[in-house]
């Protein structure tokens, strides 16, 4: 069995692990590090449930080899807020943008990334940015409302 040592930062914490070369990042996060907020669904890059931030940018952990993140910085849904809920999470709760919750971690990470790039997105821009994330409860209306409200609050705070 081919194994390699990797050292990477997950949610601000340095981790050193031995992983098989064919191990996927999603399974290392979920099984080895017990960070089960990251979800497995389609496994082929269609649904966005496994989204994590790599160096701050959203990528799919089901299509990333664990050995490939050696030396890199990963943020999962568990790591987006140091204390309590992040404003995006609060807005999702307030707007009932969570139904079964399976797509939520991916949606929230995408929304965070969007608001970082574009603090004042239009509805079209929100829909376009989240188009790779599928919600099978079809709670899109509330999800988009939550992101929009969060952007508005964020701008008022400034």
């Amino acid at each position: 069995m081919k194994k390699a040592e990797i050292e990477f930062t997950v949610n601000g914490k340095k981790r050193t692990l031995f992983v098989k070369t064919n191990e996927l990042l999603i399974n290392v996060l979920r099984n080895d590090l017990n960070l089960t907020g990251t979800k497995y669904a389609c496994g082929i890059g269609e649904c966005g449930a496994c989204t994590v931030l790599l160096e701050g940018r959203p990528v799919l952990s089901c299509l990333t080899l664990a050995v490939d993140v050696n030396g890199k910085n990963i943020t999962t849904i568990e790591g987006i807020s140091k204390d309590g809920f992040d404003p995006v999470q609060k807005s999702f709760l307030k707007n009932a943008a969570v139904q079964c919750g399976f797509c939520t971690p991916g949606m929230i990470l995408m929304a965070k990334s969007l608001l970082k790039e574009n603090p004042n997105p239009t509805e079209d821009e929100i829909r376009d940015y989240l188009r790779g994330n599928i919600c099978r409860c079809t709670g899109y209306t509330q999800i988009i409302k939550a992101v929009k409200e969060c952007a508005n609050n964020h701008n008022q705070d400034k």
């Binding site: 081919k2 390699a4 070369t21 191990e23 996927l24 399974n27 496994g43 089901c62």
Partner: peptide
């Protein structure tokens, strides 16, 4: 198909 894992093993090289 099982898309949850990569069952196949390979040698991994990083130039």
């Amino acid at each position: 198909t099982d898309t949850k894992i990569l069952a196949h093993e390979f040698e991994y090289l990083t130039p």
